[in-house]
């Protein structure tokens, strides 16, 4: 959140928040977008009105944008390439016998 010591007529649009919505029960939260809010409670309320007014979410997270730590574009190589030569990390690497769905 923005560090603001003076409380005089320094008008702002409020700090920026990132909104993560859970589309359905059991699904992971996804980034829905951002919004401005003075505090966490209002951020949640605004997120409901802005990103869930068409019933797009069953649960919402809000995080002050400046608390998000992101990897940089330049990190793309060292960060994500190693997975390329570790196919065993991916489920498609394994062939397993097909199990009939019917339970005995």
């Amino acid at each position: 959140m923005s560090e603001k010591n003076d409380t005089d007529s320094n008008d702002t649009q409020w700090p920026l928040w990132e909104v993560f919505t859970q589309p359905r029960d059991g699904k992971p939260h996804e980034h829905a977008g951002s919004l401005h809010a003075p505090d966490a409670e209002k951020a949640l309320e605004n997120a409901r009105d802005v990103y869930a007014r068409r019933k797009e979410a069953v649960n919402i997270w809000v995080v002050p944008s400046d608390q998000i730590v992101a990897s940089k574009g330049e990190d793309a190589g060292p960060f994500f390439d190693p997975a390329d030569d570790k196919p065993y990390r991916h489920p498609q690497f394994y062939s397993v016998p097909r199990v009939s769905k019917r339970r005995s």
Partner: peptide, 11 residues
Amino acid sequence: PILEEDIALAN
């Protein structure tokens, strides 16, 4: 007073 509240009041 601000875009977010405009949306809230309309809701």
